[in-house]
Design a protein around this nucleic acid. Sequence first.
DNA 1: TCTGGGGTCCTAGGACCC
DNA 2: TCTGGGGTCCTAGGACCC
Length: 255
Amino acid sequence: MLKETTALVEDAGIDEAYLDITDVSLTAQEVAARMKHRIREETALTCSIGIAPNKLLAKIASDMQKPDGLTIISETGIEERLAPLPVRKIPGVGPVTEERLGHMGIATIGQLASLPLDRLVHDFGHAHGRFLYEAARGQDDTPVITHWEPKSRGREITFQEDTGDRQKILRTLAALSREVADEIAQQGYQALTVSIKVRFSDFETHTRGKTLDEATDSYEALKRAAFECLGRLELYKKVRLIGVRVGGLQKSETQ
DNA sequence: TCTGGGGTCCTAGGACCC
DNA sequence: TCTGGGGTCCTAGGACCC
């Protein structure tokens, strides 16, 4: 349905999307009204829409009036609109970053915008520091992405009861490997890396990974690598969760 | 708030090569 | 032989998003 408006749609999860309506002849308000109408008609659900010059601001805007909202952030006065909002309103600022900023006396986006770039890069690393600096100013030049290739595929499962039963863990790991192998094979991918994840009953989490000699979608090969990874972890506590993930996905050349 | 499952991206250290 | 710098790959862990 969204594509009737523009082909530039980025799928952002099961119930979110970004639309680039730069070249749509309707006004943003008209687009929003039509979308709300159609969504209500077809699903009986409301939705919240944010309209802004970029994705970051559109996302923030969409969150500003939650159910059934429509919020527009225009080119002018962006920093003034953002300044009073809590830093947590920035998508990409989670509980950890919020807490760290809090210790620095930074609670709002306006306060964040007062910090120099080098301070943020020093404290948060190159990418995240720069991201925070730009986000505080409402800057975001990332495009609406209409298509991308998957980078990894995984399966994980939490045991009904924490377990120390190694055979059970191995059986589960094999089953998960089977599911992952089948899925990538069916989707026409081969994987170059395999990693496993183990979470203990106290939530302590460890991963082990291995890069293969060549990409594969073979269950046996992926399972073997997963087992080898597990062998490099000492299971000294009961296990709550086990997972397998394959990465370095490449399109299979066969057919 | 927690703590289920599927993802992405980043960082840091070490190995290795030129 | 020693020293150094830069680049890339691998691995483990963590933050964050839906």
